[in-house]
Write a protein that binds this DNA or RNA. Structure first.
Lengths: 214, 214
DNA sequence: ACCTGAACACCGTTCAAGT
DNA sequence: ACCTGAACACCGTTCAAGT
């Protein structure tokens, strides 16, 4: 049922996920769905959590930077596969089980790496902000890019009053090797460097490696 | 018309912005709206751009870091006032006039500060990702926090399997002085430090300040 | 020509009628 | 008891009937 809803959202967009259309997609009478699911809102909760469930747990025993890099890429990939999930997250009142499990796993990585509790809170908020925000931008670009050719697109906007946008488009974005996604690795490096500074700034006297206890 | 739609979305949520409800809110017969606006999708385009229009242009003649700090705070504030805008952005095919003007202004700040074109592209993508993503998280937290008391909230989730989340909640989030928003300034500093490194890494030999021409 | 009510093809959900 | 069709109160939009 949830899997069918995800397929439908991927194929035809979030608005196409109606009770009736989903029932047709699954080959059952519409009202039958209410025996498996309380209502539409529950379906929306479930498909968001299904996207989080696609992100594998961190591989144990590796450097925290590697673990978070891997997870950030996996999260971005999942959100690229299901761009509607970003919009849906905003209205979810309660995180699902997979979302909670993901949170727990990331917190464990940070705490084990020596982040203090306040540093962990900052680090998680900042890293997630970057990953979600970047994925949101990629989802926006996907909507823009599909219909028309790039030159047409630029011509379509009133760029006479926007010399800097025109410059960027002409000399960079419309250039053969360009890929917006390359900025993800740049931003991830910047963000992880920043997290490292949070980690070390918070425990400058721990050089000796002794355990200070609780 | 657009202002009325924004009011309605702020007050009752995005789903409450229907043609009929909007007409009632404005005190006109429903079909009258179609004389001012092509359809619902145009209204959604317009209210997103109205949010971008609330972000003032950068103050000229200041340091690029100050300008971008100011703008990031203003953008975050606008998205906090209108949390539905984040979800709506994802499905917009074309940026509106205010959005384009904002892009142009930020690009101008970056280019004037000496960022190369590739560095400008990275910088803008990374900064916007952080601001959008952080605002998205704040919108999510707003949904979570309203109904119940914090202790109740924590109790409501199955945190027995989530010791790190429980630890963070108990020893940090539920502590008197805590505010999620404080992480914004931490993340913004990290991000701007990262942009600075992009700026300088890209033009290490320009110390002399001579013009290399085009 | 301009405006707008009725109508159409949807939607999520309730509820009673079937088995 | 379980399942599900008809019905209800919506929705965006079309279109023809009014002025």
């Amino acid at each position: 049922v949830v899997a069918g809803a995800v397929e439908l959202a991927d194929a035809e967009g979030l608005d196409a996920v109606t009770i009736r259309a989903l029932a047709t997609h699954l080959g059952v009478p519409p009202m039958t769905l209410y025996h498996h699911v309380p209502g539409k809102e529950a379906i929306r909760d479930a498909i968001v959590d299904a996207v989080f469930a696609e992100v594998p747990p961190p591989t144990a025993g590796r450097d925290w930077r590697e673990q978070l890099t891997e997870r950030s890429h996996a999260m971005r990939a999942a959100l690229n596969r299901h761009p509607w999930a970003i919009a849906l997250m905003e209205t979810r009142a309660q995180p699902g089980a997979a979302s909670l499990a993901g949170h727990e796993a990331v917190l464990e990585v940070l705490r084990s790496a020596g982040f203090s509790i306040p540093a962990t809170a900052h680090a998680y908020a900042v890293l997630d902000a970057f990953v979600y925000g970047f994925s949101l931008q990629e989802a926006m670009l996907k909507d823009v890019g599909l219909e028309r050719a790039p030159d047409d697109l630029v011509a379509g906007m009133a760029l006479s009053a926007s010399p800097r946008i025109a410059e960027l488009a002409r000399e960079h974005v419309l250039t053969p090797g360009y890929s917006f996604g390359d900025s993800f690795d740049v931003g991830l490096r910047i963000t992880l460097d920043g997290l490292e500074s949070l980690r070390t700034a918070d425990q400058p006297r721990r050089r000796g490696g002794f355990d200070e206890g609780g």
